[in-house]
Design a protein around this nucleic acid. Sequence first.
DNA 1: ATTAAAAGCCAC
DNA 2: AAACGTGGCTTTTAAT
Length: 543
Amino acid sequence: MVREAEATSAVWPRWTWDDTNRWYPALLAAGVRIERAYDLRLAHRILRQSALAAWPAPEEEPPGPWDGMPPASLADDAARDEPATLFAALGPVEMVPEPDPVSELQVHSAAVAGSSAAGRLRLLLAAESAGALAAVEMYRAGLPWRADVHDAVLTEILGPRPRAGERPARLEDLADRIRDALDAAPDLNPDSPGDLLKAMDLAGVGARNLRKWELERLDHPVIEPLLEYKSLYRLLTANGWAWLDEWVRDGRFRSEYVVGGVVTGRWASSGGGALQLPKNVRRAVVADPGWTFVVADAAQLEPRVLAGMAADEAMAAAGRGADGRGVDMYAGIVASGVVATRELAKVGMLGAMYGGTTGSSGQVLPRLAKAFPRSLAFVDEAAQAGERGEVVTTHLGRSSPPPGATWQEVQAGAYQDDAGDSDTARARSYTRSWGRFTRNFVVQGTAAEWAMCWTASIRRRLWALGQAPDVPDGRVPEPFAARAHLVLFLHDEVVIHTPAAMAEAVADEVRAAAAEAGRLLFGDFPVQFPLSIAVADCYAEAK
DNA sequence: ATTAAAAGCCAC
DNA sequence: AAACGTGGCTTTTAAT
């Protein structure tokens, strides 16, 4: 039925369901790809929280089955049924009504229709739902992963794979050098922070902790082998052979994306750490024979998004360049004489968006504030709202959570009659910290919205490109077997696995999608979103 | 014995 | 440049 409707409708249906993760995998497995969907679970979370939505008051609409509903797991079909069994075993629980999708959709429609920003909310909900489709599709396709290349990388850096419970040769050598430099016992275990710190103290190294940037400042023979050890140890434990065994099957790495999993609306991932693949293992990401990758990332996405939200003509112009095409925004800031170097422009803008006040970032802030008063005022207002305990909202309408109970208690504590200096200092610190959060929330959250619109547009355009005439290998599953498809999404970057002959066409669509996302969020406002795009058979070569 | 927290580093 | 935003994940160590 779904296949039929998708194939024959003049206008694509918007399939509405409780959870994309629950329904879409089976459709894909049957070779059916969906153009449009509406994910009630995701939409509920946005609307319930949004300051822009006309959501019913809590007394009319008490928390129900849609609140806190977790997404179905893509990895484990059986796990879906377990929570209910578990609750039953624990004894009587509060009765919650069964979720009714039809009445829930009606509540959503009213909440959007009654909003003064209905268009933006509709866009946000559509983009979030399209993101959910893309996330399930990426899980199905998987990220092409050459286990043999990964193993070669590990062997090159760590030495051959050791027997279980043993250190690789390179790590064992470094452990010996660390013990020598500290004049420590031969059984000192560098993996034990407590023992190591004690031995370092005895040797007079003078380290307060084992953080990399802390160690880098010290001058002692142990520092060099220790930093090297930590670096290799990290590779071994986070992305070593055990990771390979657990997460790579049949030439694909599959990690679940958790759409809206971050408070700002960014995606999170679950299993294998897809959003933190270190640079050195990206060599294992190799396209299938006859296929290649198109790797695209949005240049200086967050400051551009800020320029759009704040309607800051000057900042938008700094990212536009003389011929009207996008240029490096930090270079543009230097060219307009605001600061001396690109590095200063970058740390200054990051500081403005993250709430940094110290060092060179803090020093250039006044100059940026003078050159781009609208953008700087915009993030400052978001910070001040947060410090007052208020909620802030992204461009399309995702609102920040209100500060929690601890925050309230700490603030109240500072106003007690017997409040001491430490109470007020603590309250001030909490206040500032929440202000940094809301300051960043509006920018990071709106950047996530741009990225979802971009991704949604990309997946639609890739499908419209159709099938490649002949594709040599059969390792890509249906319905993508002969089609360009998304395989990785990293906040402001996408990787597309495509039949090699289509790569240029794909790159054009990805650029067009970025322009479309900019228009969807900011209309005619002249902020541009240039991409850096590379076509390469290996992800590591695409930078 | 199991769970939670802390420390640390990776990504954006 | 400095240690300021959002996370996931692994290991060690402390707590229950």
